[in-house]
């Protein structure tokens, strides 16, 4: 049994490629999937700005319709496949907002929040599952293990349901 090393916690952050390079590579890989290509087209057509920030935990954030953030801890950097799938998810949300499907105003009844925000999340997860499946089917991306990564991201049950749904047409 391997013991954890507490000194991990004290690292000053690991070196990573430049933000612009990580974003460009992620968009390049996304464009290899039909649904990912739609997101890349959306980024180009709507001039979506993508930024990487340092945050304690991995997070994606859409504070404005044309501005998306991907954040993660430099001591615990996310894998390239996780980065790509997180980007796909937040870009899908930006697409929803651009289409006028927005989260309810804070003062709307809770039931309306549950209905709309849950539907938006479900759609986002459907989209990530679709992109992950399309990329996973390509030999060039075998090493990225997109479906395994999706499960690690907490979409395990959703992916099983998605695959079942796709299989049954």
């Amino acid at each position: 049994m391997a013991s954890k090393d507490l000194n991990d916690v004290l690292l000053p952050g690991r070196p990573l490629p430049a933000d612009s390079l990580m974003i460009a590579k992620a968009l390049e890989i996304l464009s290899a999937s039909p649904h990912g290509q739609q997101l890349v087209n959306f980024v180009e057509k709507k001039n979506i700005v993508i930024k990487i920030v340092r945050t304690p935990k991995a997070v994606s954030y859409l504070p404005e319709k044309k501005l998306v953030y991907i954040g993660f801890n430099r001591n615990n950097a996310i894998s390239p496949s996780c980065f790509i799938l997180m980007l796909a998810g937040i870009l899908r949300e930006a697409q929803q907002e651009a289409a006028g499907i927005e989260h309810p105003d804070l003062h709307a009844p809770l039931e309306k929040h549950k209905e709309i925000s849950m539907a938006k999340h479900e759609d986002k997860v459907w989209y990530i599952c679709t992109v992950a499946t399309e990329l996973n089917d390509q030999r060039a991306f075998t090493e990225y293990k997109f479906l395994d990564e999706l499960r690690k991201m907490g979409h395990n049950e959703a992916l099983d349901l998605y695959l079942l749904q796709e299989r049954n047409g």
Partner: peptide, 22 residues
């Protein structure tokens, strides 16, 4: 945003140092 988004800073009222997990 959904979910809500939080950032924490150390500040002396002028300078803000973002806590980034390191």
């Amino acid at each position: 945003t959904m979910p809500t988004f939080t950032m924490t800073y150390l500040t002396d009222g002028t300078e803000y140092i973002a806590l980034d997990g390191t």
